[in-house]
Simulated scan of single mutants.
Amino acid sequence: MSSRITIYHKPTCSKCRATLTLLKDSGQEFDAVNYYEIPLTAAALRELIDKLGVPVRDVLRSDEPLARSLKLAERQLPDDELIKIMVENPDLIQRPIVVRGDEAVLCRPPENVTKLL
């Protein structure tokens, strides 16, 4: 694989830190994007979800207190609305997401990153 790797992460997340360690240990160059400092746009999140090849709901952290208070698991919202809510509330985005070219993996567990190495 020749495309550069990018990890979208939250620095305080243990799975993100473990994935970053695996990337560093691999010796491959990568870019790290803290999406709390550099927020994702709706279009960027949609592109990540498309690369993951999963339904939008699979990227929603439905166990987060905010998701529970908004009753996101019970509501049948259109994908665009869910993406908008996740962009406005990044704690609701599953993490970390690692991308290489047209492929992406959700690194839960962190070892999933090896699929892109």
Rank of each mutant, 00 (worst) to 15 (best):
M1V: 14
M1W: 13
S2Y: 10
S2C: 08
T6Q: 08
T6V: 14
I7S: 12
I7H: 10
Y8R: 13
Y8S: 12
H9Y: 15
T12D: 15
C13P: 01
C13L: 07
S14H: 15
C16D: 07
C16Y: 11
R17A: 14
R17V: 13
A18G: 13
A18H: 13
T19Y: 06
T21E: 14
K24S: 04
K24V: 07
D25K: 15
D25W: 11
S26T: 12
G27V: 02
G27F: 06
Q28H: 15
Q28W: 13
E29R: 15
D31S: 14
A32I: 06
A32V: 07
A32S: 15
N34E: 12
Y35Q: 11
Y35K: 12
Y36P: 08
E37D: 14
E37A: 15
I38W: 14
T41H: 08
A42D: 06
A44Y: 04
A44D: 05
A44T: 04
L45E: 01
R46S: 13
L48S: 04
L48K: 08
L48V: 02
L48T: 00
I49H: 08
I49S: 05
K51C: 02
K51Y: 01
V56M: 04
R57Y: 11
R57H: 09
V59W: 01
V59R: 03
L60F: 06
R61Y: 04
E64K: 12
E64N: 11
P65S: 04
L66Y: 03
A67I: 03
S69H: 13
S69R: 15
K71S: 13
R75Q: 12
Q76H: 06
Q76Y: 00
L77F: 01
L77S: 01
L77N: 02
D79R: 03
D79N: 05
D80L: 01
E81F: 03
L82V: 02
L82Y: 00
I83V: 11
V87L: 06
E88S: 07
D91R: 13
D91E: 11
D91H: 14
L92T: 03
I93T: 04
Q94C: 07
P96S: 08
P96W: 08
V98R: 09
V99R: 05
V99I: 10
G101A: 02
G101F: 01
D102N: 14
A104F: 01
A104E: 00
A104R: 03
V105T: 05
V105P: 00
V105A: 10
L106W: 08
C107T: 03
R108T: 07
E111C: 07
E111V: 09
E111F: 09
E111I: 10
N112D: 10
N112I: 03
V113W: 00
T114N: 14
L116K: 00
